[in-house]
């Protein structure tokens, strides 16, 4: 199996306010959001990052997407370092997260062209991709409607398409089905499976267990910034279902019942 992502001892801390320090009864003024995280993802798999809110999933993904820099550690995407070779990394990955917004003034058609140019996609390639992706998600029906006038589901579809204008081999999806109705969510998850069959590698961050069970090949469980389990979904769910397994892991790590 070919390694496409290698994460080595990734660490990220944030400053704590004085009041928060008191609350947490600590004298250190930093909070460790991601603590020595290491894992590897292989080509053609969907790797799930599972964890409760605030576990450090999004921080990890933001580091991988070069939006923020790790305090220490490194990660390599097809050999390119997220610390020293940011520009190369940016060209290799697609990143879908609710934090990245699209200008509501523009239409899906315009935005697709704009981001294609930023990613250096050739015009003929761009037009073919646009036709294909817009058709698949039904965006062709509202391609010239300003984003501000679209529904949440439509916007999410546009964001998804924009995040992969450059046909990246490595795609990060942060809670891609959040806030979507079951129909739209199904379109999105079906597409993830389709991307995998096309040989893409996907990092899927979520707190929805069923999604992991249904889609992921392997899964890393993050609690309090640390990786507490890393295995295939099959192995993790050998004895009990993922949800129960997660509660066990949580109890072991945090030391209290859920």
């Amino acid at each position: 199996m070919e390694e496409i992502l290698k994460v080595e001892n990734l660490r990220k801390t944030f400053k704590l306010s004085r009041k928060q320090q008191k609350l947490e009864r600590t004298n250190t003024n930093v909070k460790t959001a991601v603590d020595n995280l290491s894992f590897t993802a292989y080509r053609g798999e969907i790797f799930g990052l599972l964890g409760p809110n605030g576990a450090g999933k999004t921080t990890t993904l933001r580091m991988l997407a070069t939006l923020i820099k790790p305090d220490s550690g490194n990660a390599y995407i097809e050999g390119a370092s997220i610390v020293s070779d940011e520009s190369k990394v940016r060209g290799k990955i697609g990143f879908l997260t609710s934090e990245l917004k699209l200008e509501e003034f523009f239409t899906p058609n315009y935005l697709f062209d704009f981001f294609s140019e930023l990613y250096g996609v050739e015009k003929s390639v761009r037009e073919n991709r646009k036709r294909e992706l817009f058709g698949k998600f039904g965006i062709d029906k509202f391609a010239e409607v300003k984003l501000g006038n679209l529904s949440t589901g439509m916007k999410q579809k546009v964001s998804l398409v924009i995040s992969i204008v450059h046909d990246p081999d490595f795609i990060i999806f942060d809670e891609p089905t959040n806030g979507l109705d079951v129909l739209t969510a199904k379109v999105v998850t079906d597409f993830l499976a389709e991307l995998r069959s096309a040989g893409k590698t996907i990092i899927l961050s979520t707190h929805i267990f069923s999604l992991v069970e249904r889609l992921c090949d392997r899964v890393g469980v993050i609690i309090d910034g640390r990786l507490v389990a890393l295995d295939t979904v099959q192995n993790l769910t050998a004895e009990k279902n993922l949800e129960e397994k997660f509660f066990d892991l949580y109890k072991e790590t945090v030391g209290e019942e859920v």
Binding site: S87, E99, F115
Partner: peptide, 12 residues
């Protein structure tokens, strides 16, 4: 509005 970040993750 968070649209700057979308541009910042492109190779520009």
């Amino acid at each position: 509005r968070g649209t700057m970040a979308t541009m910042l993750i492109t190779p520009i």
